[in-house]
Design a protein around this nucleic acid. Structure first.
Lengths: 142, 142
DNA sequence: CTCTTATTGCAATTCAGTCTTAATAGGAAT
DNA sequence: ATTCCTATTAAGACTGAATTGCAATAAGAG
């Protein structure tokens, strides 16, 4: 299965239609490097000649999330930040409250402890949101 | 120092005025049990005879946060959920995605590992946002 | 008591995200 | 291919949380 099929096979499985917009959205999303917001995504899609409405993006985001194409990364103020979720392993974020710098980290021990907590409360863990906020080295110097 | 002075001493230290609204806001906030949103807070303040505008609440929330009176708890959809930050030790949240149930947990090992991560990236940790999302026992049965 | 200026309430505004609706197009059945 | 049903789309109105500008008010220093 080529990577191009990932979203289409999800759509087929869910009895959803493969539209031009969904294909373009999939392409556009995968072209994103790093973190992005819905607005920047729409803007970049337009630049690439894909005129997909903001609503269509919003409507299809749950599908892209479900299909494992994108991942809700974190929230910066009002905006939700997304990132591509293909190939890249799970990780959490460390943000600088001064300059907005974003670092990614993974800690298997924390992941395991999260599972323990969920088990303890008899929850079936679906996902988690874990952000550390602090001041980076550079900002601390000024 | 009585607990009533906590906010006032913070205001004094910061060269901010002690207004009727700030005193009432402080009282009102401390009367909140559990989690609350800005709107519910304004509503309850009004019920208690404290007619404080929503704007004043928004404007003073950063001060209350800074003074350690309230704490940003987590976000539910668009709304920011707050909770009183006096007496209560730090804790994180476990949410049920089906029924919205909120459990609180503390794990000293996770806390320590967060410090380790921050140290590794040379960040000075200020706070963190840690929510586990899953399905609770009751919801899993239906 | 007076005066300066922080603070307040109001109204207008912003902005992410949602909803409504009419038009369009996917794709199954024929 | 053609028809038809219905999912999906774009446009724009709308929502609700949060912010801002401004004129009126009141804290508290002198």
């Amino acid at each position: 299965m080529t990577t191009t099929d990932a979203f289409e096979s999800y759509l087929a499985k869910s009895n959803l239609r493969v539209t031009k917009e969904r294909q373009q959205l999939y392409d556009g999303v995968r072209a994103q490097k790093g973190h992005f917001t819905v607005d920047t995504l729409v803007h970049r899609l337009k630049e690439s000649g894909y005129a997909i409405s903001r609503d269509t993006v919003y409507r299809n985001l749950p599908l892209l999330l479900e299909a494992g194409v994108v991942r809700q990364s974190f929230r910066a103020g009002r905006e939700t930040i997304y990132e591509v979720d293909e190939g890249k392993p799970h990780h959490d974020h460390l943000l600088c409250s001064q300059c907005g710098k974003v670092e990614e980290f993974v800690d298997p021990k924390i992941e395991a402890l999260q599972e323990d907590v969920a088990r303890q409360f008899e929850f079936e863990l679906q996902h988690h949101c874990h952000q550390l906020v602090g001041i980076c080295k550079k900002c601390r110097k000024s």
